[in-house]
Design a protein around this nucleic acid. Structure first.
Length: 161
DNA sequence: GCCAACGTTGGC
DNA sequence: GCCAACGTTGGC
């Protein structure tokens, strides 16, 4: 099983939106980045565990856990001229963009902020904490996954470094 | 709102 | 194939 982290701006799509969706499941559409596309198309498997990350908001950080319930398939929003994710270069016969389906598991016990993740040497290789990183989907190692799940249980890592 | 960092585009 | 210009991401 593999682990991942997926970013979303909560004003566009939040973990509460995912929880409220039918069957707590939603397709992760709108990704228009080739690296992220390749991961969804080729690598993410049913059962893989995923951190939900809120970006571009007051406290950016990890807010929940979810799992892959459907593997990569064409992102139909690219075919819809009315969608803001429309891409005229994506042809249904030869789709350019892909998505996966994701199901809500739970919120983390607290938001684990980016500022805190940056304080831990064990996480320093995560693309997330590297300056200027813009990947919206990234792999998480098993060690990083475990580490963050332990962090989540702490009241505050700066009080208990 | 600012701006650094990055990815994409397109002229050559 | 290079690279400048441009648009976007996303933390702060």
């Amino acid at each position: 099983m593999n682990y991942w982290l997926m970013k979303s701006e909560p004003t566009a799509f939040s973990i509460d939106d995912l929880k409220a969706a039918p069957d707590r499941t939603e397709h992760w559409d709108g990704v228009r980045n080739y690296q992220a596309r390749n991961m969804m198309r080729d690598q993410m498997k049913v059962g893989d565990q995923v951190f939900f990350y809120h970006s571009n908001c007051k406290v950016p950080g990890i807010v929940g856990l979810m799992e892959v319930v459907r593997e990569g398939y064409p992102d139909h929003t690219a075919f819809d001229p009315k969608s803001k994710y429309f891409d005229e270069k994506s042809d249904p016969e030869k789709p350019r963009w892909f998505m996966v389906d994701i199901r809500y598991i739970r919120h983390t016990k607290r938001v684990v902020p980016l500022s805190e993740l940056k304080e831990h040497a064990a996480l320093e290789n995560m693309p997330l904490v590297r300056k200027g990183n813009r990947l919206s989907i990234m792999p998480v190692s098993a060690a990083e996954w475990k580490y963050i799940l332990a962090l989540e249980k702490r009241v505050s890592s700066s009080a208990n470094p």
